[in-house]
């Protein structure tokens, strides 16, 4: 290179990044998670095929929980706010996220939805993802756990066909179990398939229609809530005036106790 003016042969520079392509999403997800933790809200990301019964499971959850927690939900679909309206009718304050062409929720869409929803006034907050067994699996939203709803009519080998989704699951709810007597489906085969894709297999058989298994599901949520409640205590932020100054994000996340700062 010319030492007088700097002109001359260009240089090829390799930049080693080894960085997640989803790093931007993961940053927003961490931000969401911090908010949930600070407010003592258990956030659950509910995924599953279209028609697997995610909304029906939530409706049944509201019935089974019978007022023991304050519930809330955001519900995503490409079009319509039908699911959010169903959840509202079931007693779960809800907001629709209409994704347009997007086949999955990302952390930014959830973050945006939190800004005008009183999520701080909930104990258990459901994020009902777009019905899809592929794309939602790789997007962290800031949830405490992933729950995959798999209905008995979807085929015994479904977990083997969509290993990435079931690998990401903390719990599988085997839904529509009231139909089992009418089908040639063997639950053991589904359990076996899960064991080959999900290292910490956990599955509960449920029926939104009959209420079967809902107690175990409620108990699972309670078990997951314990550390969240404990964490809030250690942060010392449970006061009627809202969270203390342990956290500061400099922006408001919807109305509610927390007030956001």
């Amino acid at each position: 290179m010319c030492t007088t003016c700097g002109c001359g042969d260009p240089e090829l520079v390799p930049v080693e990044l080894h960085e997640k392509i989803l790093a931007g999403n993961d940053r927003v997800a961490r931000h969401n998670r911090d908010h949930f933790v600070e407010a003592g809200v258990l956030a659950l990301n509910l995924m599953g095929s279209p028609g697997s019964g995610k909304t029906a499971v939530l409706e049944a959850t509201a019935r089974a929980a019978n007022g023991r927690w304050r519930l809330g939900a955001v519900s995503a679909d490409l079009a319509t706010d039908n699911d959010a309206r169903r959840l509202e009718a079931a007693g779960i304050p809800s907001k629709a996220i209409t994704t347009g062409q997007a086949c999955h929720l990302d952390a930014e869409l959830v973050h945006h939805a939190l800004h005008d929803f009183p999520w701080r006034d909930t104990d258990v907050f459901f994020i009902e993802n777009v019905g899809n067994l592929v794309c939602p699996a790789i997007y962290d939203l800031g949830q405490a756990a992933n729950v995959v709803v798999l209905s008995v009519t979807e085929g015994e080998d479904k977990p083997l066909k969509y290993p990435v989704m079931f690998k990401a699951a903390d719990l599988v709810l085997l839904a529509k179990c009231d139909l089992l007597p009418h089908l040639d489906v063997k639950v053991e085969k589904i359990e076996d398939a899960l064991a080959r894709v999900m290292p910490r297999r956990r599955m509960l058989k449920v029926s939104a229609r009959t209420g079967e298994g809902m107690e175990a599901w409620i108990a699972w949520i309670e078990e997951r809530r314990a550390p969240v409640v404990e964490k809030r205590k250690t942060l010392g932020v449970v006061t009627s005036a809202g969270p203390a100054s342990a956290f500061s994000w400099g922006h408001v996340h919807g109305p509610g106790r927390g007030q956001g700062r």
Binding site: L12, V13, V15, E16, E19, K20, I21, I138
Partner: peptide, 12 residues
């Protein structure tokens, strides 16, 4: 993994 490993670029 879904990683961006390396970028090689030409700098003046």
């Amino acid at each position: 993994a879904i990683l961006l490993e390396t970028i090689e670029m030409e700098v003046p």
